[in-house]
Amino acid sequence: MSDLILETHDLWEEFSEKKILNNLSFKLKRGSFLSVVGENGVGKTTLVRIILGQLKPTHGTIKFFPNRKSIRIGYVPQFRNIDDEYPLSVKNFVALSFSGYKLPWLSRQERQQLKLVLQETDLEKIANEPLGRASGGEKQRAYLAQALAVRPDLLILDESTASLDPISKENLLRLVKKLNVDTGVTVLFVTHDIPLAKQFSDEYLLLQPNGYEVGPIDQLQVADYEGGQHV
């Protein structure tokens, strides 16, 4: 009798005669932490784009509860182009998230929200430093903070840890897990790192070239998934 945040039914996507995702039907529980795993090109990012509404599925449906409008999604994309001359400070980068056709300056409530999210992601110390000169781990935290600034119900991380060293990876995930437990934000974590997935998530969704598997994370067999062995 669990409370769902989204459910897909018989989903697939066709790209130039290639079928991605195999009649995927899965349920995502509110407040859960799901790891999405599978080899390169199997359709993880495609699934994320369908959830975000950037891509219409060729077949099947996706339902949000109570409805799409009332679900806020925070998304940390797989690729980002921030070079070392990037001028904005960490704080101002995070604040970009407060978009919409509103007054140019932030409201008091937005400023408080900004402060809080910088605290949560441990970015207060470097809040006024330019993002271009932050380390890889700090950048990832800033991306996370930007996604969190709008107080999402669902947080989607697409391989956000791929370029980090083991310790920074764990720190970032520990942070996400803490927010997941404390605030109840649902997490969808796309990763190739099986040990990390096992350490932090509740459930897994394994996408395969001709099928898929879902289950509690402790049932995920490393042998099911070859991609995890690659660097």
Binding site: L52, G53, Q54, Y75, P77, F79, R80, N81, L88, F93, L96, S97, F98, S99, G100, Y101, K102, P104, Y143, Q146, A147, V150
Partner: peptide, 23 residues
């Protein structure tokens, strides 16, 4: 410019993030 300021700023300084948030 003032009316579209926030969205223009997001889209100019972080197009990837802006797209993710439906700007």
């Amino acid at each position: 410019l003032l009316v579209i300021y926030r969205n223009l700023k997001f889209d100019s300084f972080d197009p990837v993030g802006a797209k993710a948030q439906h700007v």
